[in-house]
């Protein structure tokens, strides 16, 4: 079973093709990525073409697509989702969502509890607690680092690196900083093999659009009482 995975919910654009055998064994066929927070829209499609070529397949060979559903800065996040929806639509194959923090957590391979966090901009982080690399505890949230109770657990992800001074950095390295599509592909194939349901490929925004309703028009004659 061939699966294309990609994520654009962080400054990274990361793409991978993975394959699972009948016994659930995972093989990474190809992967590539780059970190450039302002060019997701330009980088994603060419990277998909490159990775499928390196994997020695065409898009028509794919059986599944897995896409990072965030949370993450919205404009980049939507590049991944719009691409995934259209690819799956045109290829006639299922499209699944993977919570971006879950992919980041999975890549740590950690067996003990920890907290994963990514940059949410506006001096906030997207974060979640994990019992181990496969097991999230509770929902993903967005908060200011200073108001966040990490319970003294080890911290991973770019959010932990950015706010190390506020969060009280532990002795551990916060690596990996960004999600990796290779881990995302392995996680998605593992869940599919186990018959678990993956999230729908819909964005986790966690915040409303910050628009305010307008008040009365400003006066143009300043001297009018």
């Amino acid at each position: 079973m061939l699966l294309l995975a990609f994520d654009t919910a962080t400054p990274a654009v990361t793409v991978a093709v993975g394959e699972s055998g009948p016994d659930g064994s995972f093989t990474l066929r190809a992967a590539a990525g780059s970190v450039d927070a302002r060019r997701h829209g330009e980088l994603l499609s060419p990277t998909i073409v490159r990775v499928t070529e390196e994997a020695g397949i065409t898009l028509a060979d794919l059986d599944h697509i897995a896409v990072g559903i965030g949370p993450g800065p919205y404009t980049g996040l939507r590049v991944g989702l719009a691409t995934a929806h259209a690819l799956a639509d045109a290829l006639g194959i299922p499209c699944h969502g993977v919570t971006t923090l879950d992919a980041l957590a999975f890549a740590t391979g950690r067996a003990a509890p920890f907290v994963a966090m990514t940059d949410a901009r506006r001096k906030e982080v997207f974060w979640a607690r994990y019992d181990d690399h496969l097991t999230r505890v509770g929902e993903v949230a967005v908060d200011r680092p200073a108001e966040l109770d990490t319970g003294g657990l080890p911290l991973v992800g770019d959010g932990a690196r950015m706010y190390a001074d506020v969060l009280g950095a532990g002795p551990d390295s916060p690596e990996p900083l960004h999600p990796d599509a290779a881990a995302m592909a392995e996680l998605a194939l593992l869940r599919l093999h186990r018959g678990e349901k993956l999230p729908d490929p819909q964005p986790l925004y966690l915040r409303r659009p910050d628009a305010v309703e307008p008040g009365a028009p400003k006066k143009v004659r300043q001297w009018v009482k």
Partner: peptide, 13 residues
């Protein structure tokens, strides 16, 4: 970006 991303994906696929 939403339209361009979708258009690229349709073109690729």
């Amino acid at each position: 970006l939403v339209g361009v991303s979708a258009a690229k994906a349709y073109a690729m696929a």
